[in-house]
Nucleic acid binder design. Structure first.
Lengths: 208, 208, 208, 208
DNA sequence: AATGAATGAGATTTCATTCAT
DNA sequence: CATGAATGAAATCTCATTCAT
């Protein structure tokens, strides 16, 4: 069996086991067995448990990013791009729950090296959103540019909301039909909020 | 030393170690040492690693809920309550990063019993937000009531956004001064979005 | 509460727990709890687990010996004495199964010191039987005295048979009514065998 | 080193240590060291202390039964078969004192699962003896068949006597030369007793 | 007479990892 | 390319035992 195929099987098995058990509780024995290979072969190809986990994170992160980018038409207007990006995000996480669990739940909680890797992924998502927000503001003729820190905060809020909805919507029935609705809910929530910001309408504590 | 004091020290130590290392990687040795007690005493008082972790989750969850509730004036209007609740949430998570890490990052990823416990906490937060959204819609004279599933989705999105911002803002410098600003960013984002929804203004994919 | 009473409660509890769990698996915690006293008090009175176990063995051994002796009339003929001794033995072991379990099952299997103590008890039983056999042989006009080693072997066989029957008969229903029958079975088996030996009738391998 | 060899070494070591220390006091460390292997290997092959103990019991029980059966010629008359069976029993227990100690002293005192296993062995021995007694009675023209419960009692008594003698004779010097004599003593005691029973001669308490 | 508080030592068990083949 | 055999290190948890009061 060629190495590439074997390696993919191993990563598939590892993602499944890491998602189910967590990094520490996952055992190389179980991963090797699920991959249908012997443990020494796993070590020959992937060197160590740490390297294996890193490889999982990298592969799943690339796949997620690629899925989001593939569903966005770079020439479309900002709202369309946001809408399609969200749909791609929800579709991919719903189709690959183990990979999403590794990225979202496991990777951040098991030591710096992994957290950094997943933080880099997250930053790429945040960057995309940040660009959308900025463009939206500019395109809408925002009287004064939004402060940088606020834009970053908004981007984090939006990504967090998307992550939360992904988890919520995947945990319910009829996931397939839900994905579109989930995206719509978030879009309604976010887009109108962004529009208002763009127009300078704000909520202020003093108003209450 | 009286038992209560010792027990609190143990929980403090456990929260710190669980936050830093994760559930599986945390060792009872390290927890006992940090608590300044011997391992058998930890077992005598808290029975097992699982029970200890459960106790941590419960204590931190109660503390967080209490902090949020304490910062909300039940007689105030909906927007004011949301604003104060968010501020309480961000302030408490910023002041107790270890507790927040245990709740947000660790508890959900290490087996059903813990996940259920933290899901219950999250549900309580979501419920509060759900009520706020409904009241806001009613108070604002919403032409037709928002569909239930959409309200739930919005609540999850809002809680997810808050969670995400808590993690982001705590990871930056000057956390104290940031807390207010973080709350303001999210409030601007969310409140105006909610207002628009209330008024029936929506984003629709067909529009693009 | 006076010391003697407390000490008896402790020994009762210890015998019960040792019988149920074995020496090593029995925990001083369980014994103390069952005795209704605190652990330090147990240590104050009985010094250590080893001492406690020794005390149990000694008490139960004395009780068993006393019960057997009390049921034998020293003036009666040999067969009558054997008969009454067996009945006393079966009655006492049936009435005190925990004590018998400690003596028969536990004491011999947990290190030299205890084995010696219980071996001493057993030797006293064997001695009684040995005397009976010798007297029986003499009284019956045995042509030549039985070899010493054979008498010892017979005594051990008889005691072993009695022990085995005690375990068997106690494990069956209607123990009370059984006790007499058990004694009769063994008596029939043993006494007639002894009579034949006394008369020089033997089985020889060459005969077959 | 092939697995089978290693496993046998482990069982040998385990039998020796269990016999010397008892189930609870035996440590897996000591067993592994005596077997010349590392502890993880013992666990890999034999799974747990409980399984290891079970495996010891089973192996030693099979060996004992096999030894007894191998020394009996099924075509020989009843007394000859009893004689040879006893010799086989005494010879095997003398040659394998550790195995006998595990079966006789340890297995019955450490929890139901083990006790059941050893009870099954004992029942097989009792069954053999029961058959012998019945056949003897029939062959000898016993006027009326012995009551079933009495036969069972006799069988238990005989097995108990044999067990007791095995322990006694092994604890003395010159075991090799003793084995035959031990068997002879028991045979003399038992066979003549059985003969008398067969002929209806009984001891009765009223006689005294 | 009696106990709540505390621990050193050691038990079973698991796991990531490496050779020799 | 592939693996059966093997282990050092460390995890959770228990227990007999002792003080200070």
């Amino acid at each position: 069996m060629p190495r590439e195929v074997r390696e993919r099987q191993m990563l598939d098995a590892a993602v499944a086991v890491f998602a189910r058990r967590g990094y520490r509780a996952a055992s190389m024995d179980e991963i090797a067995e699920l991959a249908g290979a012997s443990k020494p072969l796993v070590y020959l190809y992937l060197h160590s448990k740490e390297d294996l986990f890193s490889a999982c994170i990298r592969r799943e992160a690339e796949a997620l990013i690629a899925a989001v980018q593939a569903s966005v038409d770079p020439g479309a207007p900002a709202d369309r791009r946001l809408w399609n990006g969200l749909r791609g995000f929800f579709a991919h996480t719903a189709a690959h729950p183990d990979g999403w669990a590794v990225l979202h739940c496991q990777a951040r909680t098991h030591g710096e090296p992994f957290a950094l890797e997943v933080a880099a992924l997250r930053q790429r998502l945040v960057d995309v959103v940040t660009r959308l927000i900025t463009e939206t503001a500019e395109a809408g003729g925002c009287p004064e540019p939004l402060p940088e820190v606020e834009v970053a905060g908004l981007a984090h809020a939006l990504v967090g909301a998307a992550e939360s909805l992904a988890g919520w919507s995947n945990g319910r029935d009829g996931a397939a039909s839900c994905e579109r609705q989930t995206a719509e809910t978030l879009m309604n929530f976010a887009w109108t909020g962004l529009e208002n910001l763009r127009n300078g309408r704000r909520w202020a504590p003093a108003r209450a």
